[in-house]
């Protein structure tokens, strides 16, 4: 069980780490000052959550690794984040669409984890869910505002949705890790989150006048670590450069 739990915690922590990294790339470049503040705030929450998940992962693993060690000293094949979160920022619309598609899953996931049989998992989920409630609210409002804004903003949001939709399915795929955690009462069955997710995103797309793509094809390989996109390697060259160039330093 501890191997599976370690794997699961890395999935949670790597999602927030990689998405936090992507969102923080916006710093100082947002369309309006309020968005600079909101993006930095979202990234900050995600990095905080990363520390909680990956510290717990290190503790469960019992090999002396902490969150920093896991974040900065693993290579691409060790990362367990969804392909969705490593996708490039694109324009602001693509960034916010990625955020919305992730947050809608993330909040459902965290709410289910609040009932986890593992008290530490439940506690992290509870703390994170407060922050993610706000992330979802903001992402939802932005997707609706831009989808139902001007002709140009609508076209950009539809393009972002079309581009990112193939990365949604991976969130609901089960494997042995999920099965073991479901059996232990630690985590929900990923497929069980899908109906509520579909209902939520459909409502938002309706309000945003966006059309959900018909094809539900799903790219996979991030969560299992079997095949990430090329983007993750570039993220790591930046994120881990200092730690690897000066391995004997403490900061």
């Amino acid at each position: 069980m501890s191997d599976h739990l370690f794997e699961y915690l890395c999935r949670m922590g790597d999602n927030t780490l990689v998405l936090g990294h992507r969102v923080s790339e916006w710093c100082g470049h947002a369309p309006v000052l309020e968005e600079d503040i909101a993006l930095a705030n979202t990234a900050l929450d995600l990095i905080g959550q990363t520390t909680l998940w990956l510290d717990l992962a290190g503790e469960v693993e019992g090999a002396g690794r902490n969150a920093d060690k896991l974040a900065f000293h693993r290579d691409v094949w060790d990362f367990r984040n969804l392909l969705l979160v490593e996708q490039p920022n694109g324009d602001f619309g693509q960034t916010m669409m990625r955020q919305f598609l992730f947050d809608a899953w993330h909040l459902g996931q965290l709410k289910a984890l609040m009932d986890s049989s593992n008290a530490q998992v439940a506690a992290i989920a509870e703390k994170s869910s407060k922050e993610v409630t706000y992330h979802l609210e903001r992402a939802r409002d932005t997707v609706i505002g831009l989808g139902d804004g001007t002709e140009e903003s609508h076209a950009r949001m539809q393009a972002a949705l079309n581009k990112l939709w193939p990365y949604v399915g991976e969130m609901f795929v089960s494997d042995d890790v999920d099965a073991a955690l479901v059996a232990g009462g630690i985590a929900p069955d990923p497929a069980s989150l899908r109906p509520a997710y579909d209902a939520l995103v459909s409502d938002v797309f309706l309000a945003a006048t966006l059309e959900k793509p018909q094809d539900d094809f799903a790219h996979k390989g991030g969560k299992s670590g079997k095949r990430h996109s090329e983007h993750l390697g570039h993220i790591l060259t930046q994120m881990q450069w200092l730690q690897r160039a000066y391995p004997d330093a403490t900061w």
């Binding site: 947002a30 369309p31 609706i144 831009l146 001007t150 140009e152 903003s153 609508h154």
Partner: peptide, 16 residues
Amino acid sequence: KAWDDGAWVREGLMAH
């Protein structure tokens, strides 16, 4: 660049 690239966002949100 941030301001110019963000024009469609500001216009979109205002229109909404």
